[in-house]
């Protein structure tokens, strides 16, 4: 996923930053379709723990991923104050449950560092880079790695 960074060249990248529990994350704003409040989901049987269920997004069935649980953090118990970020990657639309959305930031590629190798293999897979300043550290989420796996296309 590093080539995604290279492709950006020198242009400023706009990122949406959000909190999951105590940690700050961000994702490319181009991936974000909308941000909405928590609504009750329809549970999916036999789903992994981080799949909370599905919601109706204007006629589309959209799965909701508890990002905290997906990243191995303490799962979020959703309340009305929690937020769902609807992201679109390719043909797939997914909602991510996060604690709160903070702001939109412009970042030049030079400010983005590769994820530190010190982290455990598992967590590093979800991060495509980090941005650190005096106040905080932002982890750039690799959306593709946290999407639910869709059906393998059947071929006759």
């Amino acid at each position: 996923m590093t080539d995604a960074l290279d492709m950006q060249g020198n242009a400023t990248r706009e990122l949406v930053s959000f909190a999951i529990g105590e940690q700050d994350f961000c994702m490319d704003i181009m991936l974000v379709r909308e941000i909405r409040g928590w609504t009750n989901v329809t549970m999916l049987p036999h789903a992994p723990a981080h799949i909370l269920g599905v919601i109706n997004l204007r006629g589309a069935v959209v799965p909701i991923v508890d990002l905290a649980a997906r990243l191995g953090l303490e799962p979020i118990t959703p309340t009305e104050r929690h937020v769902i970020i609807i992201a679109v990657l390719g043909d797939q639309t997914v909602g991510f449950l996060v604690s709160a959305v903070s702001d939109i930031i412009g970042i030049s590629p030079s400010e983005i560092q590769s994820p530190p190798r010190a982290t455990s293999e598992n967590a590093a897979d979800f991060i495509e880079g980090v941005i650190a300043d005096e106040r905080r550290m932002l982890r750039i989420l690799n959306i593709a790695s946290v999407l639910p796996r869709t059906r393998v296309v059947e071929e006759a």
Binding site: T42, L44, V54, I55, G59, A60, P148
Partner: peptide, 27 residues
């Protein structure tokens, strides 16, 4: 009938989903 498979994947025992009058999804 709304497909579950586009955004999520196949769920055993579930053919698809639908949206009921109250806007909720039912499997």
């Amino acid at each position: 009938i709304k497909s579950l498979e586009g955004n999520y994947g196949h769920v055993d025992g579930v053919a698809a989903a639908t949206i009921l009058g109250d806007g909720k999804i039912a499997l």
